[in-house]
Design a binder for these strands. Structure first.
Length: 561
RNA sequence: CGGGGUGUAGCUCAGCCUGGUAGAGCGCUACGUUCGGGACGUAGAGGCCACAGGUUCAAAUCCUGUCACCCCGACCA
């Protein structure tokens, strides 16, 4: 490809909107340009990288035994009503109607439609197991697109779905997908770690995320340096710091004028925060819910939401607080009626906690679960934080930020039952298939590759995903020796199965070198009178900066892996 | 959706407070000189100052509203 013909405009300065390194370089190197929030146009250069990433994914999925299919992005809403997700996906679903007013959605994911396809093709246990995948555009009306390609409203996902006869064979399908993912990220140059994850809106049981660790990530990850435990904060288990043990004492109301928060309360009464009880209120699917947790802990809203099997959970607004008779800053489960009470195990196991009195300016000493108040549900709803003891080995947990690159789930039979993916077993009995699902965000991978592979001068593409294998910078192309060498080099590279981007523009050497660094093709070959005098062309490794003058054949051999 | 910020040339930004003919650098076009790390000169092209109302003799500038975009939180690949 000749750069003089390539549709490409690099920028000396990135648009001010970009903050992430990957976002800035994406725009500066001219790989893509924004159309609207969460929507990008790819240029030829950016699209080549996308295609190469997809190629690696295809390659590894095929190797793992999965079969590629293609489903419509435009889907009747009925399929979504069948699984209840027309409602549970809420505002995230892009909805539209055809000319006859029939409802459709732009698929945000494809469990429904892949299950439909499976229901039409799977009949017998002999047809199982099978894993199907596609690389397809997804549409999600995100509340906030961000970070360039990190969170988009229209994006490409490789989504795969496995169908098994039972949970044991699902384990094998899941492991195969897990192994394929590990290879995909490794080949593409994205360092990831698998972490335990919540299964979210898709539903299901076990799930793991592949996280690219970066300070700019949107997820918080808890890591145990002792045993290697890793989990998304929304899922993470931990040991609660032990409660201070004591015999149950008599409940007593004390004045606490002006005390609103747990730290204030603990200081005022000269107690440890773990001797207090924190009250948090939520509006859950429109109804008030009271949550009690030990004062030194925080509520994990994801765990809470899952515990309540809720569709929607938000902090209770003031109007509902008043209507419910709660007193913010001094709320109590003691004597509370008219709403569901959920308690973390920490609030139930500890004795003599100090809690609110539901009366402004007063708190209650020595409240005890079972005696003074009773939770409707007791569950693990506490948020793991940095420094909390690891659930398995007790080491203090560390936190890191990260971006989710891929996600694998054991779904079970939720979708196969709703859509009717059934098979007959050896004895002729009908069963729903046991499903797994596995997703990778392609644009997000591109962003993470840049994030993990760049320096002050620009991108440093891993060879596996680079838009071209070699960047040929031709200087003084008007000299016939240079032109001939470029042509010979191009021919040699083509013969070796390598692609080249040739900078034949009428620009200064400085501009060409700066652009080459910015675009980040792994090898740069400078063809110039100066190099020719020294007996060859100049080969430069973008990553190491190593430079040497070598004959054409040697340069080609060096580039070829 | 809550909080914060920004909308002026393709990009980065001045101008706005204090109303009076739209600016700079980079990029782009042409010509010339340069030619190994974002060269230089000359001459150009390019703007509904986000949009809509209002105030005023006069609005990029003041007022009101709307929209868009970015960043921080609740959702996800």
């Amino acid at each position: 490809m000749r750069m003089s013909k390539l549709l490409l405009k690099t920028l000396r300065e990135p648009p001010s909107e970009a903050e992430l390194a990957s976002h800035r370089l994406l725009l500066r190197a001219g790989l893509a340009t924004p159309l609207a929030a969460g929507l990008y146009c790819f240029t030829p250069l950016g699209w080549r990288v996308m295609r190469r990433i997809e190629g690696i994914i295809r390659d590894e999925m095929d190797l793992s035994g999965a079969q590629e299919v293609h489903l419509p992005a435009l889907q009747p809403i009925e399929n979504w009503e069948q699984t209840g997700r027309a409602e549970s996906m809420g505002q995230t679903l892009f909805r539209l109607a055809d000319r006859k007013e029939r409802g459709f959605v732009l698929g945000p994911t494809h469990e429904e439609v892949m299950s439909f396809l499976a229901s039409r093709t799977i009949q017998s246990y002999r047809d199982l197991p099978v894993t199907l995948y596609q690389i397809q555009t997804k549409f999600r009306d995100e509340q906030r697109p961000r970070g360039g390609l990190v969170r988009l409203r229209e994006f490409t996902m490789k989504d795969a779905y496995s169908f098994d006869t039972n949970w044991d064979t699902l384990d094998a399908s899941y492991s195969a997908a897990f192994a394929a993912y590990t290879r995909i990220f490794e080949r593409a140059g994205v360092p990831v770690i698998p972490v335990a994850a919540d299964s979210g809106a898709i539903g299901g049981k076990e799930s793991q995320e592949f996280i690219f660790l970066t300070d700019d990530g949107e997820d918080e990850i808890l890591l145990c340096p002792g045993c290697g435990y890793a989990a998304n904060a929304e899922k993470a288990d931990f040991q609660r710091p032990p409660a201070i043990q004591a015999a149950q004492a008599e409940m007593q109301k004390v004045p606490t004028a002006g005390i609103k928060t747990i730290p204030e309360l603990a200081a005022f009464l000269n107690l440890h925060q773990r001797q207090t009880k924190k009250a948090v209120f939520y509006r859950v699917d429109g109804k008030p819910v009271f949550v009690a947790i030990r004062g030194d802990l925080d509520v994990n809203e994801i765990k809470l939401k899952n515990t309540l099997k809720a569709k929607d959970l938000e902090a209770m607004d003031e109007a509902m607080v008043r209507a419910s008779g709660l007193v913010a800053g001094s709320a109590s489960a003691v004597g509370l009626v008219g709403m569901q009470i959920v308690a973390d195990t920490s609030a139930v196991e500890a004795a003599n906690l100090v809690g609110g009195a539901n009366e402004d300016g007063f708190h209650l000493l020595n409240t005890n679960h079972g005696r003074d108040w009773k939770a409707d549900i007791v569950a693990d709803i506490a948020l793991a934080r940095r420094g909390d003891p690891c659930a398995t080995c007790g080491t203090a947990l560390e936190t890191r930020r990260g971006i989710e690159m891929g996600h694998v789930f054991k779904l079970g039979t939720v979708y196969s039952e709703a859509i009717g993916v059934n098979y007959l077993d050896e004895s002729g009995e009908r069963h729903p298939a046991v499903m797994g699902c596995y997703g990778i965000g392609v644009e997000r991978m591109l962003a993470a590759i840049i994030e993990a592979n760049h320096d002050a001068n620009g991108i440093i593409w891993p060879a596996s995903v680079a838009p071209y294998d070699v960047h040929i910078v031709a200087l003084n192309l008007d000299q016939s020796a240079v032109a001939e060498t470029v042509a010979a080099l191009e021919a040699e590279l083509t013969r070796a199965g390598l692609s080249a981007l040739i900078d034949d523009r009428d620009e200064s050497a400085g501009i060409k070198f700066k652009d080459a660094d910015l675009i980040g093709i792994p090898f740069r070959v400078t063809v110039s009178p100066r190099a020719l005098e020294k007996g060859g062309v100049e080969l430069r490794n973008r990553r190491s900066g190593e430079t040497e003058v070598v004959p054409i054949a040697a340069a080609v051999a060096r580039v070829h892996p």
